[in-house]
Each structure stands twice: as structure tokens, then as C-alpha cells.
Design a binder for these strands. Structure first.
Length: 496
RNA sequence: GCGCCCUUAGCUCAAUUGGUUAGAGCAACUGACUCUUAAUCAGUAGGUUCUCGGUUCGAUUCCGAGAGGGCGCACCA
């Protein structure tokens, strides 16, 4: 191990040894703080040159030695503050020990506030305590402030290493921390909104003997004691709807779903899903709920300093366009009446491959994606999907070729998918059996017959509206983030 | 899965047509400096050029295979 250390790491271990030899405990247990850095800076009144003593703790992020004095910056979760060390204040021994400190060390300091000649609020350090020695250099860049804007030089740019070592990415990039603060605020806001409307947050199984609720390949695992296969859930849907049968009128879950599919800038194998179900509501009711929820969520993200500026202003009610008329207008003829061959030619003309192997629903979906979805910029509801595209939704009242389903699109991306939920167990059994036939024929994305779920439905399932929102993608939309890896703290990567 | 691109010091980047000992800034080390702030000044050290193989007198550079990553397309949320 020791042979693997580079010279920088060796130097730090030597300093660690020297500190121990001098009687310093290099890894402390606690430190009593009076302020966070930003609060300490703000506590010195405008115009005042001296203030009271403060105690702060954090990481050394810059060091400028001047012989018998030194300036440094200390950063904590709130921001940074300048430190001023003087030999005549700290004494010969302590000041000499500062030579054994490094950028990246976690320290606690105490001393009175002062304002330097250039006006920066600074702690004139009278006590310095090492809280954790840094044995590996953090990839700090240098920062300067030009016209009030912080410019970072060099720094930590390798995106792969930033994902692999998110701790280092966060440690050196306050703006990355701010982004994940915003993500946390988003989820807190969603909980607050739903709790305030009488929804009950529940937890349903992640490990499921039978997966369902979506079309996707699962992760499979095995329980040793029971000697049985288990699957990581691909959706929460079927368990949440069981709870509506049980008498909870409004339930929601925020959790991870897992899909054993490819990884790209909009797909991570595990992702955060919000699903909520409201008994006695239909899809038009849910559109109104979704509008209010998104406004509430966007406001929460907008409140985060440094991130909120990017958040689009949402102005409900969002426009609603009907699926079939919108596509018919785009192609200049009635899409519901078009022949398969003509449809295939239209899809092919969009530059989409493999049209000869596509089913009619698939062709319709492709065409809609190319001609309508991708051109939606402002948040827009697309409503009333063809029944062949929507196996989980109730038929539309007055037109059984369509379903009571809506999706919300913005910037060409799907943000929300919702239905008036199918609550007819006889119909549901037929749809399950159709899935089982597909599976028997080799479709590994098709599910089987979930007998327990059918049993629940047969007891009587209230009508309900259900909504699914991919939280990672909603967050990406709100913060204008292009890559899902930038929206997930520890994205799935190949092993190093 | 397919196509294009990338991988050089701890970090950020150079390196002429294939040519001597692979350079610079930051970080590190030694020294100077009691209001600096990308501190400054003088000096020192730091490299399996992603890996393996090939061509060549000579490879960071050209060729082949592999690994990891990025972007685009396809699939999905």
C-alpha cells in the first residue's frame, strides 16, 4: 500500500507523523461552533472593522503564507470565510505547526472578526484545532472574483471521476452541492403538497415475487432461506392500487424503481419514481392535481440560491391537446383511419428504422413521438391515447377506441403519465393473459398473470386516478440538467 | 446495440511531419516575506503518455485488439 502513495500523499503522511510527534491528535471527536462561515461573515455590521469572537469549522480551501503571517480560506456548508493567522498572536509553537497543515484539512478555528484593508470579513485566529488531516489532495481549482462573479481556474473537470468520486466533486464544487440541495427541496415539497391534500405516504415491496405495472426487463435475485426468485420492482403501481382496495383513499410512494436496460444520459438502472393514487377521481381531476403539484415543486426549486434562476415559470392551466387530432393535423389525414402500409411509409419517412417489424401501436407511437411530442416545448397535456397504446387505462367514455390517459410533455420530454385506472378485474385478467402469451412467446418485457392482484381487484376496486412522475427527469427539466448522472448523487457506473 | 471522439505529472492542459532527456500553470517540497486573496519572489522534485501487441533505426504521435469515459442514434421513464 505504502509503495502506491505518490509524493504528495507521502508528504502528507510525514506531516501527520510530525503532528502526532508534537502531541496533536489529527482526528478529533467534535468541535463547538458558534457560526457557519456565511453567518459569521454576515454578522459583522457594514462599516464595522472589528467584531466579536466566532468559532467555525470546515475545510481549508486556500492558503497564502507570508512568513510570520498567513491568510487562508475555510469553507463549510454555508460558504467560505477568510482566516488570518499571526505568529505574534498564536505563539511560536502553534504558528510553526501551521506548516504541517494542508489544503483539504478539516479544522476548527476561533477568534474575533475583523475587516481587512481590502474590506473582506476575516477571522483573526486565536485558536486553531485540527479536526481531520487530509491525506489525499482534493482537486481544488483556484478561484478569483471578477466583477462579482467567481471564476474557477483548473479544478476538477473529468466527469467520470466526478461521478465516481462524488464526495470529491461535492467537496470542491459548491454549485454541485446546491444542485443536490435543490433536489432534496423538490422531494420535500412534493411530500408537503401530497401530505397537505390527505395523501398517505406508504412503502411497498422493492423485492417482489412477481413484477408488474410497467413494461420493462427486471433485475432478478434470489432469496436463500425461502429458496425463491425475487425481482426488484419496475413500478409501484400494483401494490399501491391494492392499498386503495384496502380502504386508503389517497396513497403515494416515492422510491426507486429498477429496470435492467441500457444506460444513457436519460436512463439510470435505478431511478426515483413518484406514484400517487386518488380514489373516486378520474384523469381530468388528476390533471388539475398535477398542475398544482408542479407549480408547488417548481417554486421550491426556484427558492434555492444559484439553482433557482434556471427554473421555468409554470403557468397553469397547461394547454391540452388530443392525441388523435394532433397527429392527424401533423400528417394531414385521419390517423385513426389510415392503412397500415401508408402508416409504415409515414414512419419510415421520419428516418425511423425497422418499420417492417413494428406493430401498429408501435408505429403510431413512433409517429407521434417524431411529429408531436418532440416539438412540444411548453408544458402541455396530451390526452386520450388510443387504447392499443394504453393497456392499463380505462376506455374513454363515449369512444372506446381511446383511453382516459394523459401525459405531460415539456421540452420534448415526457414528465408525467396518468390514467383513469382500470378497475374491472375481468378486463384486467384478459390483459394479464395477453401479457402472459407475449411472455411465453419470448417477450422478456411482458409480465405474467398476477393472481394476487386480481384477487384484490375482485373484492372491489374503487375508481381512481393514478399518476406517475419520474423525479429525476422532472428535476432535470426544472434545473435544465442534460445528463441524468448530474441529477443522481451516485449514478450507476462500470466498476473501476 | 451502432457510429464518432477522448484517455499524457495529484489537478488543468501542451508537445511541430514519427525524431535528442515528454513541457507549462496549479498543488507538493526548500528558502524569503506581519493585510494577502488565482498572493508574490528564488530554487527543487514529480511521468508504466490507459493496457497489450505490431510497424519503424526511433512511437505520446502510425496500425490492430482490449479497457474506461463523452457525444449522437436506437430503446426506455
Amino acid at each position: 500500500m505504502t509503495e502506491d502513495l505518490n509524493f504528495v500523499q507521502k508528504a502528507r503522511r510525514e506531516k501527520l507523523d510530525a503532528l502526532v510527534a508534537a502531541g496533536v491528535a489529527p482526528f478529533a471527536y467534535s468541535y463547538d461552533r458558534t457560526h457557519q462561515a456565511a453567518d459569521a461573515v454576515a454578522s459583522l455590521p457594514e462599516g464595522a472593522d472589528e467584531g466579536g469572537t466566532v468559532r467555525v469549522a470546515g475545510r481549508l480551501v486556500a492558503w497564502r503564507g507570508h512568513g510570520k503571517t498567513a491568510f487562508a480560506h475555510l469553507a463549510d456548508a454555508s460558504g467560505r470565510i477568510q482566516l488570518y493567522f499571526r505568529r505574534d498572536e498564536l505563539g511560536e509553537d502553534i504558528f510553526a505547526q501551521l506548516a504541517l497543515y494542508d489544503i483539504g484539512d478539516v479544522v476548527g478555528v476561533a477568534g474575533p472578526l475583523m475587516r481587512t484593508r481590502t474590506g473582506e470579513v476575516t477571522i483573526r485566529v486565536s485558536e486553531v484545532v485540527l479536526l481531520a488531516k487530509s491525506l489525499r489532495p482534493l482537486p481544488y481549482g483556484k478561484e478569483e472574483v471578477v466583477d462579482g462573479v467567481t471564476v474557477r481556474h483548473s479544478g476538477f473537470a473529468d466527469s467520470e471521476q466526478r461521478y465516481r468520486q462524488r464526495y470529491a466533486d461535492l467537496a470542491v464544487h459548491p454549485e454541485v452541492r446546491a444542485l443536490f440541495v435543490a433536489r432534496s427541496r423538490l422531494i420535500t415539497a412534493i411530500r408537503g403538497f401530497l401530505d397537505g391534500r390527505g395523501f398517505l405516504e406508504v412503502e411497498t415491496p422493492v423485492l417482489q415475487p412477481q413484477y408488474g405495472g410497467a413494461t420493462a426487463r427486471p433485475f432478478a435475485t434470489h432469496h436463500n432461506a425461502l429458496d425463491m426468485p425475487l425481482f426488484l420492482r419496475i413500478a409501484d403501481e400494483l401494490y399501491l392500487k391494492r392499498l386503495i382496495v384496502g380502504g386508503f383513499d389517497r396513497v403515494y410512494e416515492i422510491g426507486h424503481d429498477f429496470r435492467n436496460e441500457g444506460i444513457d444520459r436519460t436512463h439510470n438502472p435505478e431511478f426515483t419514481m413518484l406514484e400517487f393514487y386518488q380514489a373516486y377521481a378520474d384523469y381530468t381531476d388528476m390533471m388539475t392535481v398535477v398542475e398544482a403539484l408542479l407549480v408547488h415543486a417548481a417554486d421550491a426549486v426556484r427558492a434555492v440560491s444559484g439553482i433557482g434562476e434556471k427554473v421555468p415559470v409554470l403557468r397553469p392551466p397547461f394547454p391540452r391537446i388530443e392525441w388523435a387530432p394532433a397527429l392527424s393535423a401533423a400528417i394531414g389525414q385521419d390517423v385513426m383511419a389510415i392503412e397500415d402500409e401508408a402508416l409504415r411509409r409515414l414512419v419510415s419517412a421520419q428516418g425511423i428504422d425497422k418499420v417492417n417489424t413494428m406493430s401498429r401501436p408501435k408505429l403510431l407511437d413512433e409517429l407521434f413521438g417524431a411529429l408531436v411530442e418532440s416539438r412540444i416545448v411548453e408544458p402541455t397535456f396530451v390526452v386520450d391515447y388510443p387504447v392499443e397504446l394504453s393497456p392499463l387505462a380505462k376506455p374513454k367514455r363515449g369512444n372506446t377506441a381511446l383511453t382516459e390517459r394523459f401525459e405531460l410533455f415539456a421540452r420534448g420530454r415526457e414528465l408525467v403519465n396518468a390514467f383513469s385506472e382500470l378497475n374491472d378485474p375481468i378486463d384486467q385478467r384478459q390483459r394479464f393473459e395477453a401479457q402472459a402469451r407475449l411472455r411465453a412467446a419470448g417477450d422478456d418485457e411482458a409480465s405474467g398473470v398476477d393472481e394476487d392482484y386480481l384477487r384484490a381487484m375482485e373484492y372491489g376496486m374503487p375508481p381512481m386516478g393514478g399518476v406517475g412522475i419520474g423525479i429525476d427527469r422532472l428535476f432535470m427539466y426544472l434545473t435544465d440538467t442534460a445528463n441524468i448522472r448530474d441529477a443522481i448523487l451516485f449514478p450507476t457506473l462500470r466498476p473501476e
